[in-house]
Nucleic acid binder design. Sequence first.
DNA 1: CGTTACCCCTGGAGGC
DNA 2: TGCCTCCAGGGGTAAC
Length: 275
Amino acid sequence: MPELPEVEVSRQGLLPYLPGQRLLGAIFRTPKLRHALPGELAARLAGLRVDAISRRGKFLLFDCQCASGGGWLILHLGMSGSLRLVDPGTPAQKHDHVDLVFSSTVLRFRDPRRFGVLLWHEGSTVDRHPMISVLGIEPLSDEFDDDWLYAATRRRATPIKPLLMDSHFIAGIGNIYAAESLFRAGISPLRAANRIGKERYRHLVAAIRSTLQSAIAAGGSSLRDYAHSDGGLGSFQLSCRVYGRPGEPCMRCNKPIRAVRQAGRSTFYCPHCQR
DNA sequence: CGTTACCCCTGGAGGC
DNA sequence: TGCCTCCAGGGGTAAC
């Protein structure tokens, strides 16, 4: 399941190959992806050059410009999406929904559960797209620190864990990394956000940073050759200390990990170590 | 405005 | 073994 680190590693893996390449076109095998308009998109893309690839939260942003103007491809991998670079003519398999065709390679998007998103935004900037403009702070940016988090939570009575996962608040923290970061910071996922002090938020910011960055590092080190690796990006998910381990002993205190539901999502934590 | 329930989708796991 | 149900995930939308 791609979270921010997987998306970032995907971006880094594509950087040696795509920027500077010109799109010949696109092939859509699935009539309707979420929010996408495949027909129009396929026609619009031909002739554009990918100038840069950036990331916002879990969105990959392909800057596709040309002399007569261009726009941005906005891609979200959902929960089961993956990208790979294949040679032209490589047969598509089940769930291979979209090909972005370049002269010497093809960027292939596979997404079995089809929660992914592929959108086009006309123009030179993507900041004002309705799905991008509403995104919250980047958790790996310098602006994200204990001062920011403390101030931003003073009027939020919601439990901290669903707030961490709210992409309008912080962009890119999913269920797994929210649980793992809270465990490392020793904060209960049930605690109201406005009842956590600045010192504890300092620990949480550090935990979020280190959890995300170590996952990116792990992915980067496992990423040898994006173009020729068969499986695209392997799952390089960090080894979880609480996520998916209900009933198992806490690695710190040996008491059992508890599972609860918050806002419709499962939450795993150690009631003894996390307060 | 803040918060929650539900929906989209498919495959895998577990029960019978 | 096969069929059924449940669950996972992110983010939009509707509703409270």
